[in-house]
Design a protein around this nucleic acid. Sequence first.
RNA 1: GGAGGCGUGGUGUAGUCGGUUAACAUACGUGCCUGUCACGCACGAGAUCGCGGGUUCAAGUCCCGUCGCCUCCGCCA
Length: 604
Amino acid sequence: MTEGFRRTHWAGELRAGHVGERVWVAGWVHRRRNHGGLVFLDVRDRSGVVQVVVRPEDGEAFALAEGARPETVVRVVGHVRARAPQAVNPHLATGEVEIAVERLEILSRPDPLPFLPTDRGVDEAVRLRHRYIDLRRPEMLDNLRLRHRLTRAVRRALDEQGFIEVETPTMTRSTPEGARDFLVPSRLWPGRFYALPQSPQLFKQLLMVGGVERYYQLARCYRDEDLRADRQPEFTQIDVEMAFVEAADVQAAVEAMMARVFEETVGFRLELPLPRLSWRDALDRYGTDKPDLRYGLAAVDVGEAAAQSGLPVLARALAQGGAVRALSVPDAGRLSRRDLDALVAAGRETGAAVVAWIREGDGRLGSSFGAAAPEEALSALRAAAGAAAGETVLVVAGPLAGARAAVGAVRAAAARRLGLVPEGPTPPALLWVTDFPLFEVAADGRLESAHHPFTAPADEDLPALLAGEGDPRAFGSKAYDLVLNGFELGSGSIRIHRTDVQEAVFRLLGIGPERARERFGFLLDGLRAGAPPHGGIAIGVDRLAMLLAGASSLREVLAFPKSASGLDPLTDAPAAVDPEQLAELGIEVRPPAAVSGAEEGRSP
RNA sequence: GGAGGCGUGGUGUAGUCGGUUAACAUACGUGCCUGUCACGCACGAGAUCGCGGGUUCAAGUCCCGUCGCCUCCGCCA
């Protein structure tokens, strides 16, 4: 080996077995302990930390070591030697050895840094502004590594199943429906815009028409909507599409992939096939289409008991065509009155007309139905709810949608307060939610696609759809969701591959032939070119990585995330551009006052 | 678009009912220290309390506005 910036070993890999070897190690000074006549440098690289010992008799190296601040970039040449027994550090993987320095080189001296990787509790805004320092923290490197293992497992699993990775454009055309687009102005065609894809949906369908048959891509997607802890404006999907398949085939392919992902990221062996839950059952029992099944607390329909209970509030809800559902909570007296009030409040917020509780105490029943509520009625409701002795029953009533939503809210709040929600990623609750409706009714009464407009209807509803008969709101679809620990991980469907079916769906959605032609003409032409039956799914990589890492924010598994307001704290994007650039694009901007205000308001 | 929380030396925090010199830890600088590993000890420098306005004899503290960060609702086919 010749001179230069090379190294022979990773710092973190040195063990007793290396004792006596002459090694070259390079990295950052993690910590320095200067005892005057003896200096310890902890040298950190990607693999970990190793202690380097420098003594006055080491000459130049000693002078350099004394001046080596944390995060100085160094290379160390020296011999690995065993530490004296009393000097062994059991907390360090390399704690049995140290490097006796022979030569120390300073490769780069840092300015005083806003924070050090060893600092705890640094504000996230500061971390993001100086992400290159933050990424040196082992936790961040671990998250990046986990994400790498995740995408590697995806590629291996899909490759083995015969999928081909194909890239699709990120500069494409805006299609209506769905989220807002990010637009890219065209210089060659002033006044026209590309759009960044919200997903490669139409391209992957055309790849099926194109005979690719099995496609996948780790696709960047862009949606201009407000952010959340689990939502960034640009994100990555495992985009999958297959020809000549039914839903079960797509699901089987994804399950094999997920099994590999869990195995290679968190070392967990998934049991296959994954459980299936119909959309209707998910809503009836858990009050959400993405239930967290790491805990039970399933709701039961207690409409009959409610009708016979004589309780006026329940009778009223039923008379208005509503539903009454009940949830048995094994609280063993752990839920305080205040907890119960909070659960009731959580349920009320979602639009249930009634949220009440019935509990056992001192050998009699108490409830929030009021003192006048007959004990037999409460007892009958408890029995209908399947409550065991000591369990508290929560009753919700109202219009079906409100009652379902309340079940979901109360169930989640109860699980949280009872500590039923595990912290880490394993054991996971991964399942399929199937049999989504084809349409749902928007606030303004119009039909919208529950999944997206290219989702195939259920076979039994196809004739009615084509004939323009029946109630579209009752049509089923071939859509399915993959749900992990209460998060929607992915969404997929068997697609429409017949032009007449696609046109019928557009018609019901209020998309006329001209508009369909204008927006989706290339898809309709494709379907006319001999389209195979096909279907697929898109799975959120960021969200999956977040859950596997046990993180509570997407930002922890992204190297360079955006802030909650969509700003990039590192580059300060989005930023104003030169007037010349705008002129070239034929764009005039009315500068909002906020742009200059943002500059002044920024903290130094 | 809406609601809430937060903003004080580089970093993380304290600062009571408005009151005199804004405190602590750490990082930073200088010196001492030969077995530490969150090394230790001493000394030093470092803040117009996010920004703008207002109330007051007096504002880090109260009021209004604004910017930023975080969380949630709306939104996200």
